[in-house]
């Protein structure tokens, strides 16, 4: 039974960890994107959106090159942990963070844009520092955007396949997540197993999207309303 649930558990762990890490990165970045008038902004926005349009194989290939023990990042990881980054769970988390990036950043950016400068200025005249105003005004007003970002990141990470196959391979307990397990099951003609996992993932994804759309409807046109 443990074996049967292994990929599910691994997928949940990967998605959960990715969501937490990604939100920590996406919050300040989305805030900057929503407020900045810097000429660099379009370039940063483009880089952020790249994973949306690139084939997972291309993304996976570059990530693999980046995680190679001969590359600076790969070597640093080996020096610190004694293990290679490619074909390991930490490597998978790293790849997922890159792959799901736009799903965390874009809903947050939209939500932060709808907060507006006005209330932030009001907060500053009332004695709130920028961080204080962000925490007590911008973030609560963007609650729905934050939830949307978290749910989409989680669901998207759960469903990824191409990048995982490229950088993670198919190692039980390490990198064999649900989507890979489905692929293996089909390869070995174990259709019952493939059905079981696919139906589970389908149902989960559907429910997730319904929840996101319901949240957006309640908030009107603004994701972060």
């Amino acid at each position: 039974m443990t074996d049967a649930w292994g990929p599910v558990w691994l997928s949940l762990k990967l998605a959960g960890l990715t969501t937490v890490i990604l939100l920590a990165i996406a919050l300040p970045l989305a805030w900057w994107l929503a407020r900045s008038r810097s000429p660099l902004r379009p370039f940063v926005e483009a880089v952020t959106a790249l994973p949306l349009v690139m084939p997972p194989t291309v993304l996976g290939f570059y990530l693999l090159v980046l995680m190679n023990p001969d590359s600076p990042l790969g070597r640093a990881f080996v020096t610190i942990t004694g293990e290679t980054l490619a074909f390991s769970f930490p490597g998978l988390v790293f790849a997922s963070v890159i792959y799901s990036f736009p799903f965390a950043v874009q809903p947050l950016q939209t939500a932060f844009q709808s907060v507006g400068r006005g209330v932030m200025e009001a907060a500053s005249t009332l004695g709130a520092s920028r961080l204080d105003a962000f925490r007590t005004v911008a973030l609560p007003l963007s609650g729905r955007g934050l939830l949307t970002a978290a749910v989409l990141t989680f669901a998207h990470t759960l469903g990824e396949f191409g990048v995982v196959l490229m950088v993670g391979g198919n190692i039980p307990g390490q990198t064999r997540v649900i989507s890979i397990e489905v692929y293996s099951a089909v390869e070995t003609l174990d259709y019952a197993r493939a059905h079981q996992l696919s139906a589970g993932l389908l149902a989960f994804s559907f429910v997730t999207l319904v929840v996101v759309y319901m949240l957006n409807r309640r908030g009107g046109v603004h994701v972060g309303g």
Binding site: G118, A122, T125, V137, P140
Partner: peptide
Amino acid sequence: PEKRQVGFVFQDGRLFRH
């Protein structure tokens, strides 16, 4: 602005709606 201690009443109110 947060250190100037100006009580600013904006034209559009800018109350915190949450």
